[in-house]
Design a protein around this nucleic acid. Structure first.
Lengths: 205, 205
DNA sequence: CCCGAGAGTAGACATTGACAACATTGTTGT
DNA sequence: ACAACAATGTTGTCAATGTCTACTCTCGGG
């Protein structure tokens, strides 16, 4: 375990990951706007130019944060869905998915904002890929539901995107203070039930 | 009409609004991150400290931009809905609402990002109010639909928020580059139809 | 064993937001 | 008419920041 009391050798040896950790703490505490490379360097105890060896740019650091966020979000979404034992209980799985997203987004407000805001300029495919992997899961849920006849036919990816967008929008509004956090649960609930009602086959049976 | 070739009198006379205009141009051209008060001052031709007389803070300028954005958005949403002559054609009005939002958001990418990102810290009620006025309209649509029996009963504001969140989420994903702009129209379409299918009364008389 | 690449350091520079002290103008009360 | 006075702009200054360049340290492989 690295100790801060330890006499730092000339080479830190673990700077990149520690920078990411410190950056995430700062992000949580003061937001992306306030995040300063020099601050992180100070906090870790290296010179102000050291971060540049690992991140070409302030933006590169933020992108790395966003990417890491998407990876973790994807993992948590997958875990939440898999936690529903009954593989055929689509409503439960959908609700688990939505709840997991909401929990992540409200527990990581600034991070989520960063993830949604970071415009992926040409070439920065890493972030986009991580994001796609995160919400791609829901397409699978839709497809399975359609295969079992529980859902109306239709482009599964499109439908999945719409659901994802709904949850994203709700948490975005809560996180930006447009609506009170107390309404979150209720909104997610009506969103999911609304979708299920609208997506069931026209001729039941 | 004010000319830039004119000898500027000591008092500019219209600095506040011209600052906002210049700020919006800069926002559109380089994003909120890059917006610099000194730049705006230079562009307008006043001293670097002049903006401070009208905006206490860089953040105050951005907040004003966001508020103005919400006001204009609200107007365009209202106009779009009112443009549908048949007051009882709920689907058409919903679609008009969604389309208008999408158009605004894709025509004003950075502005929309700013509006959604600006965390309204305690006391900054102006932005929140403008936002509420913008999306509050949809609750009215829902209520009318319910009154005519075209929609299932339920908290109209909650339902309205869910729709708004869906459209917001879709455009957010497009604007952040997560999905290609070409899919926008189709996604909005499925979102609206999905909602309408799910919201119709259970026993259609 | 040495030497070169990777990793950290030190110094410099332009830019920025914020602040203070001062200048100019328009307004208002008398 | 005119003297305060409040708005509005200006100049000067300061600390902080991102980024760049040149230098230093350390370690592992020929």
């Amino acid at each position: 375990m690295p100790d801060t009391t330890e006499q730092r050798p000339y080479h830190h040896g673990n700077l990149r990951v520690e920078l990411l950790h410190a950056a995430e703490r700062s992000l949580r505490a003061h937001g992306a706007e306030q995040l300063s490379l020099r601050d992180l360097a100070r906090e870790i105890g290296v010179s102000h130019a050291a971060p540049r060896r690992h991140f070409a740019d302030r933006r590169a650091l933020l992108d790395a944060l966003a990417e890491s966020g998407f990876v973790r979000l994807g993992a948590r979404l997958r875990a939440a869905v898999d936690e529903i034992d009954d593989e055929e209980d689509l409503p439960a799985r959908l609700y688990a998915f939505a709840s997991a997203y909401v929990r992540f987004a409200t527990e990581n407000v600034a991070l989520t904002g960063l993830m949604n805001a970071s415009k992926h300029r040409p070439g920065a495919t890493a972030v986009a890929e991580a994001a796609a992997a995160a919400f791609g899961q829901i397409s699978d849920l839709i497809e399975e539901g359609q295969a079992r006849g529980e859902l109306e036919e239709g482009d599964p990816e499109g439908i999945g995107l719409v659901i994802y967008a709904t949850v994203l929008g709700i948490t975005s509004m809560v996180n930006s203070g447009m609506i009170e956090p107390g309404r979150l649960e209720g909104l997610v609930d009506t969103a999911v039930t609304q979708f299920l009602r609208g997506a069931r086959p026209t001729e039941p049976r």
